[in-house]
Computed example of a mutant assay.
Amino acid sequence: MNQVVNHLIGLLKLERVSATQFIGRSQDIGFPKLFGGQVIGQGLSAATQTVEGRFPHSLHCYFLRPGDSAHPIDYDVEVVRDGGSFSVRRVIASQFGKSILAMTVSFHITEEGLDHQDAMPNVPGPESFKSELSLYRAHADEIPSKVRDLFTADRPIEYRIVENQNPFRPRPGIAKRHMWIRSVAALPDDPLVHQSMLAYTTDYGFIETALMPHGISIGNPYLNLASLDHAIWFHRPFRLDEWLLYVADSPSSSASRGFVRGQIFNQKGELVASTAQEGLLRYSR
């Protein structure tokens, strides 16, 4: 298995301390703050390991404090309820005795019901686009030296963005983007691996959609960008080692907060998940 993929699987697996307590290693990606997607993915993994025979269908979380990428994270899971067909877990992630994330996850048995969905957007397939990583490497001379290695390093997830342009010289445009996403290597058949890795992935490049109408780069020195909350709904089974289309749009930005929402389709056109997020967008010229 690819080394960076294997590392991510291990990162999301967690060390079990008790029936409801876990410890997660931190991933140093070159910034002092933890990547929010890591805490989402690890929190989902912790909650899922306390439930049997049911699969997560939604999660909602709030980022309370920045995490420290140099230290491990404690995850405490509260068994809120186990009903006839639904189970609910509350997860608190903490470092140094202080909460950094609060998450609620709901689980559901597998059952049949009414079925409909939005149509998948008609965009060219992933073979029509270069990876985002290749663009970063092509524009490496424009990346600040202190984060150049971070942006050009190998990644466990490949992103191919339909609206590709120079990420460090963006042009104002419509607040909508389409990203093809896929693991760079085959994954185990365990659904938890695919769900926790997708949870990790959905935070990447998501809030940046709210910057698109303004032509502001994430590398802008006058921009303070941070995730405030995040939600995911899992609709249908999927595999992250097969191409998925992540469609994101931002209907509003105001009061230094940007709101984004997303839909994730497989190549059959099935809507497999939906997302939403609000993020801090403090910008001072």
Results as ranks from 00 to 15, higher is better:
Val123Ala: 12
Arg285Gln: 13
Leu211Ile: 07
Glu111Val: 10
Ser217Gly: 13
Gly258Phe: 07
Arg148Phe: 12
His57Met: 08
Val91Ser: 06
Glu127Asn: 09
Thr104Ser: 14
Phe86Ser: 06
Gly125Met: 10
Ser94Ala: 10
Asn220Asp: 15
Ser274Val: 11
Ile9Tyr: 01
Gly113Phe: 12
Ser94Trp: 03
Ile218Pro: 15
Ile92Asn: 11
Gln195Ser: 11
Val77Phe: 01
Ala102Asn: 04
Arg25Thr: 14
Asn122Cys: 07
Ser217Gln: 08
Ala102Trp: 00
Ser128Trp: 01
Pro121Ser: 04
Lys146Phe: 11
Gly173Tyr: 04
Arg90Gly: 13
Ala140Gln: 14
Ile100Trp: 03
Glu127Pro: 00
Gly205Phe: 06
Ala185Asp: 15
Glu111Phe: 05
Gln27Trp: 06
Ile181Lys: 01
Ala210Leu: 09
Ser145Thr: 13
Val272Pro: 04
Arg137Ala: 06
Gln21Phe: 03
Gln263Thr: 08
Glu242Trp: 05
Ser217Leu: 07
Asp28Ala: 11
Asp154Glu: 15
Arg25Trp: 10
Ala231Met: 12
Arg137Leu: 10
Ser183Asn: 05
Gly30Thr: 07
His230Asn: 14
Thr48Ile: 01
Gln27Tyr: 08
Lys33Arg: 15
Tyr75Phe: 15
Val4Arg: 07
Ser253Ile: 00
Gln38Leu: 13
Asp82Leu: 07
Val91Leu: 10
Leu135Gly: 05
Arg155Asp: 02
Ser183Glu: 02
Val193Asp: 00
Glu15Lys: 10
Tyr204Glu: 10
Ala226Ile: 09
Thr48Val: 03
Leu271Arg: 12
Gly37Ser: 10
His71Tyr: 11
Ser106Asp: 11
Phe35Thr: 01
Pro144His: 07
Ala226His: 11
Phe259Gly: 09
Ala102Phe: 04
Pro191Met: 08
Glu142Met: 01
Gly173Thr: 08
Trp233Pro: 14
Ser227Tyr: 00
Leu192Trp: 01
Ala226Glu: 13
Lys13Thr: 13
Ile29Trp: 00
Ile161Ala: 04
Asp76Gly: 03
